[in-house]
Design a protein around this nucleic acid. Structure first.
Lengths: 185, 185
DNA sequence: GTCCATTTGTCGTTTATGCAACACATTGAT
DNA sequence: ATCAATGTGTTGCATAAACGACAAATGGAC
């Protein structure tokens, strides 16, 4: 990703901050967590926090992205193609991620979370599409955008009818549409 | 102890180094552990190691002192007096410490370990004696020295006849001598 | 509303750590 | 014995992090 993170001091400090934030998230709601709380927990100076993050929302962004990435990295994208199985895996990972979040009291930040999920999905879909299509044209990007919004939207709808069906069954019903579309990019 | 350790960076780095050293001690013998190993494990720069420690022997010193101190701190010296019970506690802590060390393959450093134990004992005994005697004279220091050597020597002898008796029983037989001496300082 | 305490972002300075390079010692293989 | 490889301890410089201070913003209590 970024190449400037090679300084071990930076890696250590960021991990301290992020871990402390995750720790505190288990104890109170996001709105009650202050920058001071985090830096006290992490035993770092408050000024150092602002050296790495714009503010606490920037931190939330990056922590969520990282957690989601870890969820998604359980799926080995390097080997898997964009097919029925991988789409189902991704969908399940997203619904799991949202379930974990709602348990951790991150209410009121649905918009932020939605954006993060879509951004990550777009990156992943674009990468997978590019592996299957040798030529790199604009339609790959647009397809990735549409897929990211579509899959995210499906996860929202699935949560709305919770307990009606498993996430696997839910997304499977859209596979014919998705796959034929992907094959004709 | 030292007042300069307040900088959180110093505390973090020293902990990283010491923890890495303890971790490595579980895998190989002391003679096979290099400074490079430690700094690689701790993910700190090698030059930083020398900022905190003279060399690897200095590190060994400080790690052992700290581990022993933690063992001894289980006994609450602030409240306890220098009596039969506390002497037995201290003796047991020392024999436990030595047992733990021999399991961790620190062979060949008996002299170093002996010195560390005696130094710590001397500090502790002097502190306890000073609490009981209001006047602070030279004989307190000498008494602390003799006690530290004596108790350490007793632990050596106990280990030599291992399985003969419990450490508690072993040191108990010296209590009459020790206590009457302490009372007449 | 006002007051008071706490938090937020920012800044300048000091200090600890990272990094690359160095000469030298130690080790191990041939 | 020689040579290469690795470890040691040290140095000068670059940079991240600590610290204290500050004005401004926020949030309760009254």
């Amino acid at each position: 990703m970024t190449q400037s993170k090679t300084d071990p001091r930076v890696l250590r400090t960021r991990k301290l901050i992020m871990d402390s934030f995750i720790e505190l998230s288990g104890k109170k709601e996001f709105k009650d967590i202050t920058v001071k709380d985090i830096t006290t927990e992490a035993k770092i100076n408050r000024a150092t926090f602002y050296y790495h993050f714009e503010d606490i929302y920037d931190l939330l962004d990056k922590v969520l992205s990282e957690v989601l990435l870890i969820n998604l990295n359980a799926i080995d994208f390097e080997k898997s193609e964009l097919n029925e199985a991988s789409i189902i895996d991704i969908f399940v990972a997203i619904t799991d991620f949202q379930k974990a979040l709602s348990n951790r009291c991150h209410r009121g930040y649905d918009e932020t979370i939605a954006r993060i999920i879509r951004e990550q999905l777009e990156i992943i879909f674009y990468g997978m599409l590019r592996k299957q299509q040798t030529e790199e044209n604009e339609s790959l990007k647009v397809t990735a955008v549409i897929l990211s919004w579509g899959i995210y939207g499906a996860s929202v709808e699935w949560r709305r009818n919770r307990n009606e069906s498993s996430p696997e069954a839910f997304i499977k019903s859209a596979i014919p549409f998705l796959m034929s579309g992907i094959e004709h990019v």
